[in-house]
Design a protein around this nucleic acid. Sequence first.
DNA 1: AACGCTATTGGATGCTCGACCAATAGACAA
DNA 2: TTGTCTATTGGTCGAGCATCCAATAGCGTT
Lengths: 240, 240
Amino acid sequence: MSSSAPAKQRVRKSPKARRAEIVGRAATLALTEGLECITMRRVAEDLAVRPGLISHYFPVAEELVAEAFGTAASEELEELIPAERPAGSALDQLARFFARATGARYDDMSRLWLNARHLSRFRPVLAERVAVQEAAWRDRITRLLREGTAEGAFRPADPAVAAIQILVVLDGLGVHANTDRSNRPPAVTNMAVVTAERELGLPEGSLLALVHDAVASGTANGAAASEPLANGAVPPAPTA
Amino acid sequence: MSSSAPAKQRVRKSPKARRAEIVGRAATLALTEGLECITMRRVAEDLAVRPGLISHYFPVAEELVAEAFGTAASEELEELIPAERPAGSALDQLARFFARATGARYDDMSRLWLNARHLSRFRPVLAERVAVQEAAWRDRITRLLREGTAEGAFRPADPAVAAIQILVVLDGLGVHANTDRSNRPPAVTNMAVVTAERELGLPEGSLLALVHDAVASGTANGAAASEPLANGAVPPAPTA
DNA sequence: AACGCTATTGGATGCTCGACCAATAGACAA
DNA sequence: TTGTCTATTGGTCGAGCATCCAATAGCGTT
């Protein structure tokens, strides 16, 4: 052996790359283990660097937490509803949105929202970031609803209100997903989609059918298949 | 001055009384400042005793946290739906339930649920208590729905499912209450009641009117007036 | 090939927390 | 009143945390 000590070798990277690396690790840490696990020591350990380095890029720890959440949330939003919509109608996009947002793959994000909202009580910087992301999610859904209205696909009383209602139900489901999830009745699992159908003036079951299709065809934004919705509940054929 | 030191005098109480005192303080602490503020030192300080005393009654801190949550949650449930229903129909009781559960007075409890659900990730003992309370709340609502069904007041497809749906919407609203709450559209505020009306087969706006009455008459279980629901939205006259 | 900039290290400091324990003093019974 | 039991104290200990800083070594420039 040339040396008995671990002989730590430094790897020097550009500030930009290093910073991105840190935020990236913190973001996945937030999604998998929770925001409170984002600590100087922990992130440093995962990246095989010294804690001092992290605090060099983020002199105040809370800043990193906020950044991590912001990154995770905006990336997920991009998966749910891409900023520039791919081929297909607004209705199809809405179906893809629900396919992902009600699938098992969304559980981590759902939990992260819960986590972030709670932690916001004690961390003002994070709170601001949460408010920003909340607005971003709401606005992007609202926009999609407006587009769908323009396309004649649906007619919400107020797109902005409908967007909030959808988010409220999704959040409610997410909260319960953390404990229940197993043996959950289809009538509960489908609440979000059913709410959307009602508020958008869609025929009962029509959107639900589209969501099922989206799940089946793996089109549910973001590659691999997410879990099917509620298997027992076969939706009635769309009326329109 | 007889002594220069603060001259701390001990107050000796019965274990039962002291324990209750500790749990009580911890419970209100949980409601007002959050479960993570329940620390040996903090509770001791509030009670003007030494930290060692707290850890004497609760050798493991997590136990106190769980106990505090359980107490707060079960007391609130008793306010929402008393175990033995006072005079009045099940429908009236349901209206009183919503009057309180959607009022400003419920905000703390709503936040506590959020807090507890999140913290459950890291604290197994608390997680079990949360599961117990979740079941208790669900079961008591289910029972009330069954009673109302027996009284012919409403006809839910499945009382147990309807109970969960109501809770999901309430939780969703609670989650958003932590950030929004201001300038919230009536169509959002009323979501819980509207959901109940739909799932219970009640005429649109009928329950909402009863809830408004309950708020106005201050009958909203638990003394003082809670904030009115959505002031702008005058519900249509009940059809039945 | 030598230099200078700065990304990175290694260590120190002080904080809050849960947990543990011998000593003490209040209350109740004899 | 005296004595015993135990509720309560007061202090200690180690772990994990953010934050700060002087020294070091990697890399692009010259």
